[in-house]
């Protein structure tokens, strides 16, 4: 495979804005098949906006977004999931009034009608989530709104995995979780990656993120300011000082 074939996600000079307020300026980055890539940056840098722009919410005002070589910049939001991209958005956005199981089943929407009707496939996908998050599954008949923060995060990840995405986007999944849960979460992300899913991980928890990532990007005020191999970024004095709390 040459470099071009390896690229799963490519952003070229992407700009985005809320109304007249620009947030992203000429963002260029890529994620290769099988990689874990992390995007770190301070609060308000535009990380969440970048993930949402991939889904056209808001839509990029300039530049191109390609998935597996196919241009998706102007695709309607609901069509993008069908390409094989799933997002665990900021704030989890689970459906609180539905049961855990219903939330998970909603995750299969991007599959073809035929796949969605296949009870064997559905059972296998649910079983996969259950193997990743056994404690979550114990509550599968419970309303999702009654779950703890950690369980809701597991649910949001499980829901995203139900469509067997090729690319999994996560927006600060560790936010608000206790240290023990954060360790478990990153272990699960490693396992998901080992099973063949490419991961693009947005984190303020840069230390942990860079430890499991292959490469990283640093976003400052809507611009990519630094990029490199995760271990190099982890060792970089600048990054340490700005995003790793100095230790």
């Amino acid at each position: 495979m040459n470099a071009e074939e390896r690229r799963l996600l490519v952003l070229e000079g992407v700009r985005a804005a809320y109304g007249a307020v620009p947030v992203l300026h000429d963002v260029t980055l890529h994620v290769d098949r099988g990689e874990i890539v992390t995007l770190i940056g301070a609060n308000g840098a535009g990380k969440s906006t970048l993930l949402m722009t991939l889904f056209g919410q808001p839509r990029a005002t300039a530049g191109r977004i390609l998935f597996s070589g196919q241009e998706m910049t102007a695709l309607p939001t609901h069509r993008i999931a069908r390409l094989g991209i799933a997002q665990v958005p900021e704030g989890r956005r689970i459906f609180p009034a539905m049961t855990v199981e219903e939330n998970l089943i909603l995750g299969i929407t991007p599959l073809t009608a035929r796949e969605q009707e296949d009870p064997g496939l559905r059972a296998a996908l649910l079983e996969h989530v259950r193997s990743l998050f056994p404690r979550l599954w114990e509550r599968h008949r419970q309303r999702a709104g009654t779950l703890s923060g950690g369980e809701q995060q597991m649910l949001a990840i499980g829901r995203a995995l139900m469509s067997r995405p090729r690319l999994l986007l996560l927006d600060e999944p560790s936010l608000g979780l206790a240290p023990l849960l954060i360790r478990q979460l990153f272990a699960v992300l490693r396992r998901i990656a080992a099973e063949g899913t490419t991961i693009f991980l947005v984190e303020q928890n840069a230390n942990q993120a860079l430890r499991i990532a292959d490469r990283g990007y640093v976003l400052v005020n809507g611009r990519i300011q630094m990029e490199g191999v995760a271990a190099d970024l982890l060792a970089d004095g600048h990054v340490r000082q700005a995003y790793l709390g100095g230790h």
Binding site: F55, Q57, P76, T77, H78, R79, I80, A81, R82, Q87, P89, R93, F95, P96, A97, M98, E102, I105, L106, G107, T109, P110, Q116, R159, S163
Partner: peptide, 24 residues
């Protein structure tokens, strides 16, 4: 039904429903 589930999802969080591939 799937339709009913999609209706409820759209009702609770329209943007998330779109992210999940529902044509709201």
């Amino acid at each position: 039904t799937t339709l009913g589930r999609s209706c409820r999802a759209t009702q609770q969080d329209r943007v998330m429903a779109e992210l999940l591939g529902i044509n709201t």
